[in-house]
Write a protein that binds this DNA or RNA. Structure first.
Lengths: 257, 257
DNA sequence: CCGTTCATCTGGTATATACCAGTATCAGGA
DNA sequence: TCCTGATACTGGTATATACCAGATGAACGG
């Protein structure tokens, strides 16, 4: 049925390597040339397979390769689209990612997914330097940019320090709420960043396949006295962000790693 | 041939969802229970398919799912193995990742892949605050832990400031060389961390498939006067590390992101 | 005008098969 | 003893097919 040199040829003139990578390369070029731009829809698996005379699976692998590169995102059963450019999250600049983002060209929308009053478990209590079982306010928010989910954030605040916090409008920068209404300034933070597999509910909120990887950013936020008052966890679509920091070497830390 | 309730049943009693995820879950449990421990070999795609009565592709997807989670790594055509636990890289502690790692239980080996004297292009010159075309020493090293590649590091040093640098033994902490032989102390750094697709030569060095994602960490290192003297890029196997930092808020940064 | 229905897109899961290309081991020969 | 080659693994790439399930938009009916 197919007019290919052999089942697995390669090394014939121009293109080499796996067929699916050759196809991925052609599409990547189209994106870089600008034939396809941000949020444009890509050819479907089936149309790719016709266009290149390969099976659907091969077309699929080409598209999946572009997905893992972050060049393309996949909206479940609607098709694949060209990714927008990354957001930069400056973790040293704790004075509100929201404010900074909104000050630049980025339109950031916040959806409150869940709020709760609960009690700190062992780990959380230890991070917040509070007794186990102390009351905490807990809220989860989903951040969008132009209808596209970017990251999920869950924060835990020491309840007694911020009375009535959950009744406030959480669709804004919480750093500003803390600053204006509670006279609490984020001053330092201990941050951990790691790449990991996405969990089912996260995949759903972020609109990605359950086989993808995400970037998890956890931070303990302290006030000007060094007292922790907030623990936060962000789960980012990996291709949507880069994280920058300005570090000042503290030579006392040496034994810690 | 197969005794399954229907082509795509699910919802029959215990396990639900895609078959490949059910299988992945069972294997994940085995790892968490300790039936399989670090660097143990997992069942092959073919043996999984027999064991569970599924096609090879389904067994494969189960294993791939565990790979993207980082729980399992894949050594090209040798099989899949249980991943070791993550290393922690404290980016605030620039006083040598090597030294800190070697001080703890981690055995870290360094292989020098390439060294070169070259000239700074536009971007590099700008990062190092030097004129374009200035001389730089460039070296690429591969870091292993127990025969397993962890990350690739390429560093660029201002040549005239560190005469004879490339003749030194680079299989050790360069921070220490700089400190002891050139009286230069790493004091601050501007760091960017992002997740991205791996490039072919990186995939080969890191011993991962070319469809994987990695974490890229770039940093400009400055001395105590704030003068940049080194630019470095690290490419990590994403599942092998987590990055921690202690950030101090600098409110002047606000406009920068 | 609005809501329902339905055909038709999309990707998601799954099977079966085939052959390619590295890796590892072990038997046999120089 | 050491090298060679056969062999039996491993995953990698590819085809062909089937059906499921969510998304979408157009046609239809109230």
């Amino acid at each position: 049925m197919l007019d290919r040199r052999s089942k697995q040829d390669g090394k014939v003139g121009s293109s080499v390597g796996p067929r699916f990578l050759q196809i991925a390369n052609e599409i990547r070029d189209q994106i870089h040339r600008g034939d396809l731009t941000v949020h444009d829809i890509l050819p479907s698996e089936r149309s790719l397979s016709e266009q290149y005379g390969v099976s659907r699976m091969t077309g699929r692998r080409a598209l999946e390769a572009l997905e893992t590169e972050g060049l393309v995102y996949n909206a479940d059963r609607r098709g694949r689209f060209v990714s927008p450019k990354r957001l930069n999250y400056n973790v040293s600049n704790m004075v509100s990612f929201v404010t900074t983002a909104q000050a630049s060209e980025v339109d950031l929308e916040i959806e409150v997914v869940e709020t709760a009053e609960s009690f700190a478990d062992t780990r959380l209590a230890s991070l917040l330097e509070q007794p186990e079982g102390c009351g905490v306010f807990e809220y989860t928010r989903l951040f969008h940019s132009g209808k596209h989910p970017i990251f999920i954030e869950t924060e835990y605040l020491i309840a007694e320090r911020f009375p009535g916090f959950l009744n406030r409008n959480l669709r804004q920068s919480t750093t500003q709420i803390l600053e204006k209404s509670y006279n609490t300034l984020a001053n330092t933070g201990d941050i951990v960043i790691r790449m990991r597999g996405v969990q089912a509910f996260e995949a759903q909120l972020l609109n990605i396949a359950s086989s993808h990887t995400v970037i998890e950013l956890e931070q303990v936020i302290r006030d000007d006295k060094g007292t922790p008052f907030c623990f936060g966890r962000q789960v980012w679509r990996g291709e949507m962000a880069e994280f920058s920091a300005h570090a000042i070497v503290s030579r006392q830390d040496q034994g810690k790693a």
